[in-house]
Design a protein around this nucleic acid. Sequence first.
DNA 1: ACAGATCAATACGGAACCGTAATGGTTCTG
DNA 2: CAGAACCATTACGGTTCCGTATTGATCTGT
Lengths: 116, 116
Amino acid sequence: MSIELRHSEALVLLHQVALQQVRDGGLDLSNRQIAILLTIYLELPPHTVRGLAKKLNVTKPVITRALDAMGHMDLVARRRDPNDLRNVIVQRTVQGSLYLEKLSDLVIAKARELAP
Amino acid sequence: MSIELRHSEALVLLHQVALQQVRDGGLDLSNRQIAILLTIYLELPPHTVRGLAKKLNVTKPVITRALDAMGHMDLVARRRDPNDLRNVIVQRTVQGSLYLEKLSDLVIAKARELAP
DNA sequence: ACAGATCAATACGGAACCGTAATGGTTCTG
DNA sequence: CAGAACCATTACGGTTCCGTATTGATCTGT
């Protein structure tokens, strides 16, 4: 990706992506949720509640609740750490990979429209 | 902006932007709110509740509530349309312009980090 | 083996948002 | 000059999220 991104282009891109998502009426993830989801999918495992809370600079219940919500949508899965049963390991799911794939498709499509 | 944007790059960009916003703990706008805000700032005025609702494919109370929330943060302002007192004209604010300027700064900075 | 540390989850009261439906003004129309 | 149409808002019951504090389970260190 080029660094030739102007202010107006950045905002138009955000606008188009947000607009399309709202219009489609699909999953309405909060900024926190998307940050957590992308961390799980992009950064090296293992991911624990505490680790995510520290990385995002939020309290642990925030992570627990976000995992509840996204787990209910099948975007992530939870599993107890066998080596330390206090820990919960957050894992990716097929559904979550699919969602992010569609999300990046959307961003790429809108970025392409930006410079025809 | 180039169209050379790969899937992983798109997701990393979204990740970095979302992460930074969550960490900073500033305003936590929902996807709907950001869509509304960007529509107000990027598209041609005048903006009415009904017009925004139609454009975003949501109900009017959704817009009213979002304007309540963002109005309280001084990101937008409401004014009665003098030509038709039934209408409400949504207007930009200095605070809102500042917020979007910082947001685009963030996107540009993270995009630049993507291709050093 | 037991006290303290550490983990995730839950309880709690409060705030925000949802969609549907009703309300209060304002304008259009016949 | 009424009644219909239209616009934004509010009311309502329900759901979700917030932060703080607590709970229950598991590990650690002595």
